[in-house]
């Protein structure tokens, strides 16, 4: 029987090489992130629920084997919780039909949960990064029944799933405008972020008079109101399109 000669500390310590884990390459494609983040940040919960349900419905046609494998899993409720979104996703597997819903960020009742940033989860879902690597780096945490998360990861990794396509398909005939809308929403959200940063700089200027500050603040208020109005119009447009599609 062979016994290990594997090195550890001590005499052979020099052969074990350690580095701080390099920062993971930025792999995220912009579109699915834009779709997800925009949808989850701006759209009402009810609409998100419907989109999620339609996405699962479409998976039956676009990835039938994936849906069958999800149905074959042990019956369970799995929470997928992006820590930078205001919601978590509730996936029910091991039964027909498999369902995907939306719950509050602090919802309970999961048999197992996986928590990471939305960018990390999208990378994982689309197969651009390895789940174990994320776990080793502590970029992903899991709780509850580990075998459910391992099983889900392996089932998802079997199929080349493109989240952007699936989300867009969930919009049905509105898929092309949905993509455009998502890009627009993401752009608006980015602009809001930029403006907020600008406002912060304005509020903490290296120098400047009170009158200048007042004027700049007023301009920022105007910008935010304009952006809010545009967001409202985009939401209304989407609502009309959605009602027309329904």
């Amino acid at each position: 029987m062979a016994i290990t000669t594997e090195v550890g500390s001590g005499a052979a310590a020099g052969t074990v090489q350690s580095l701080p884990a390099p920062p993971p390459p930025r792999l995220v494609h912009r579109t699915p992130l834009a779709l997800l983040r925009s949808a989850a940040t701006v759209l009402p919960t009810r609409l998100l629920e419907r989109l999620a349900a339609r996405m699962i419905g479409r998976l039956g046609r676009s990835h039938p084997r994936l849906l069958r494998n999800l149905e074959r899993m042990a019956p369970a409720v799995i929470h997928i919780a992006p820590h930078d979104l205001p919601y978590r996703f509730v996936l029910t597997v091991g039964r027909t039909p498999v369902t995907l819903g939306i719950a509050a960020r602090d919802a309970s009742g999961a048999d197992a949960s996986v928590v990471a940033s939305v960018a990390t989860l999208v990378d994982l879902l689309e197969g651009r990064i390895d789940g174990d690597t994320l776990f080793f780096r502590r970029d992903l945490t899991i709780s509850g029944d580990t075998s459910l998360i391992v099983g889900l990861r392996n089932v998802l990794d079997r199929d080349e799933l493109m989240l952007a396509d699936e989300i867009a398909r969930a919009f049905g005939p509105l898929a092309p405008p949905a993509r455009a809308l998502a890009r627009a929403l993401d752009h608006v959200l980015e602009r809001v972020g930029t403006r907020l940063a600008a406002m912060h700089r304005t509020l903490h200027p290296p120098s400047g008079s009170g009158a200048d500050l007042e004027a700049q603040l007023e301009r920022c208020r105007g910008e935010i109101e304009a952006l809010a109005a545009r967001l409202g119009r985009l939401e209304a447009r989407q609502k009309r399109r959605d009602e027309k599609a329904a």
């Binding site: 290990t4 000669t5 001590g10 005499a11 052979a12 074990v16 090489q17 350690s18 174990d132 080793f136």
Partner: peptide
Amino acid sequence: LDELRGEAEGGRDTFGAYRKGWR
């Protein structure tokens, strides 16, 4: 030489028994 270390368990790698060294 270094580019695969990020994928390694524990973030570290070794030549293992190939460069034999007993504790």
